[in-house]
């Protein structure tokens, strides 16, 4: 049952985007988000939209997977839209009781919503086309300069990748604990919220205890295999830029220049 949950939203298929270096995709997503905040008018949005559309087609990921990410922020989208439409002062178009819909409000509201939609789709495009492993690898490399500021970049990446590896194991464990507790009469199906919350305790306590024990065991096993932090560590699959990555960087820079130029000219 719950064993089949897949975490992270990687969509397995072959495409140009899937093959690109994770560092490039992280930096690219970051630049794209910045570009969304630089554009001011309809042309800029058109450029950003077309760019995104091309990427979506290139990714071979069904569009509905990207829309899925929007569901989570639906409330935020509606809220942003409504607030902006009603509360922006300007030329009144329609008046409803105390609130006025203004021309400026419509403009700002729709821009905010489009911006958010692009932002979410753009970033889910990255997670959809990159395995969690490559993503953490990429993140570690991209954030490497922050090590100078004493930020534990390697450790964070290690934590993330171990967490990913342990998800199936802990899900299995959770399943076992739930079955064991149900066998002893625990009720997880109750309609009452208070009862449901109470029934979580006998699940979470053993789960925590075993997670602690596993953590201790794993730390010993890592030490036994000479783990001593990121210092002097090599990689089985080091990240290497290939030609496609350089081309992608070029495209990315061109896009960014276009956005900036568009902002200056219009």
């Amino acid at each position: 049952m719950i064993r089949d949950i897949t975490l992270g939203q990687y969509y397995q298929t072959e495409s140009v985007l899937h093959g690109l270096d994770p560092r490039l995709k992280i930096i690219g997503t970051f630049l794209y988000i910045i570009s969304l905040f630089l554009v001011r008018d309809i042309f800029g949005y058109a450029v950003a939209g077309i760019f995104l559309a091309v990427l979506i087609v290139l990714s071979h990921v069904p569009f509905k997977f990207m829309v899925r990410g929007l569901k989570g922020i639906l409330v935020l989208l509606i809220f942003t839209g409504v607030v902006n439409v009603f509360l922006t002062p300007g030329e009144v178009l329609v008046s409803v009781w105390k609130f006025n819909i203004t021309r400026e409000g419509l403009k700002v509201g729709s821009r905010m919503v489009i911006r958010l939609v692009f932002l979410v789709i753009g970033s889910s495009l990255m997670t959809l086309t990159t395995t969690p492993n490559r993503l953490t690898d990429g993140l570690e490399r991209v954030l490497k300069p922050l090590k100078r500021l004493k930020l534990p970049v390697h450790e964070m990446a290690m934590i993330m990748s171990i967490a990913l590896g342990f998800i199936p194991i802990l899900i299995e464990e959770l399943d076992k604990i739930m079955k064991a507790q149900s066998a002893r009469g625990a009720d997880f199906e109750s309609k009452k919220l208070s009862a449901r919350i109470k029934s979580m305790v006998p699940i979470l306590v053993p789960l925590f205890v075993s997670a602690f024990r596993r953590a201790g065991d794993l730390a010993t096993a890592m030490e036994a295999r000479c783990y001593h932090g990121g210092e002097g560590r090599t990689k089985l699959k080091p990240l290497r830029y290939r030609r496609a990555d350089y081309i992608a960087y070029l495209v990315l820079i061109l896009y960014f220049i276009l956005i900036i130029a568009e902002g200056i000219i219009f």
């Binding site: 969690p132 492993n133 990748s161 171990i162 990913l164 590896g165 194991i169 596993r214 065991d217 794993l218 010993t220 096993a221 890592m222 036994a224 295999r225 000479c226 783990y227 001593h228 002097g232 560590r233 090599t234 990689k235 089985l236 699959k237 080091p238």
Partner: peptide, 30 residues
Amino acid sequence: MVFQNPDNQIIGTVVEEDVAFGPENMGVKS
């Protein structure tokens, strides 16, 4: 050293990556 619980000593999310963990720590070339 190999330990008792197979789940608690596997670090990688793919078999080959797990096997590589030791040599990676030792700084062996890719």
